[in-house]
């Protein structure tokens, strides 16, 4: 039996901020009419979030058993523990049986990176065409954007910690980008 391993084998780098591979993370892509009752109850089954608490545009919300992130008007990304992905997916499929919706395990197609430290905002702002100032970007917001040459989704878990999700095939590129942006002598001190 093969052992699942994360894309970067838990690599880490200390610079302006600590950049590290977050390891295996269960991820389920859910597509469908997000306002449909069956779709909402599938999200509840996966994350423990009840209807009104589910994320609106550009939000990421955490529930008892996982998080739900708004990806587009008809797409959500659900985060759960890696080992539970199969059972969570099965519970969701049951709820989605009668509606036109799609739930797929994409855990192994992605890599999750963390950028933590007081300069985390600055490190991310060097790579993404976003306004990452504290007035504009706070924990609870998720943005899909471009990180240098690759697509990425990023959000903050607290005031000094970013999480970034990229495709696994570009994990190495993403890690090297973040390492360069977090080079100890490349501080800008903007935020």
């Amino acid at each position: 039996m093969s052992e699942p391993i994360s894309a970067l084998k838990m690599a880490g780098f200390d610079g302006l901020a600590r950049v590290e591979d977050c390891g295996l993370q269960g991820m389920i892509t859910l597509r469908g009419d997000l306002s449909a009752r069956a779709v909402k109850s599938a999200v509840t089954a996966a994350t423990g979030l009840t209807g009104p608490k589910q994320p609106g545009p550009l939000q990421i919300v955490s529930g008892k058993s996982g998080s739900a992130a708004w990806m587009s008007p008809d797409e959500m990304l659900l985060l759960c523990p890696y080992g539970e992905t199969g059972s969570v997916l099965a519970a969701m499929q049951e709820k989605l049986a009668k509606v036109h919706a799609l739930a797929v395990d994409v855990s192994d197609a992605r890599v999750q990176l963390q950028v933590a430290g007081p300069s985390a905002r600055e490190v991310m702002a060097k790579l993404c065409p976003l306004d990452l100032s504290p007035e504009n970007f706070q924990p609870g917001t998720i943005r899909r954007t471009r990180m240098a040459q690759i697509p990425a989704a990023l959000w903050m878990v607290d005031e000094a910690t970013f999480r970034v999700i990229c495709f696994r095939s570009v994990a190495d590129y993403a890690f090297n980008l973040l390492k360069t942006a977090a080079h100890p002598e490349s501080g800008v001190g903007y935020f």
Binding site: P57, L58, S72, P73, P129, L130, D131, R143, R146
Partner: peptide, 11 residues
């Protein structure tokens, strides 16, 4: 108009 963000041309 879908997500309401001001997207940079490169996005």
């Amino acid at each position: 108009p879908y997500c309401g963000v001001d997207a940079d041309e490169t996005e």
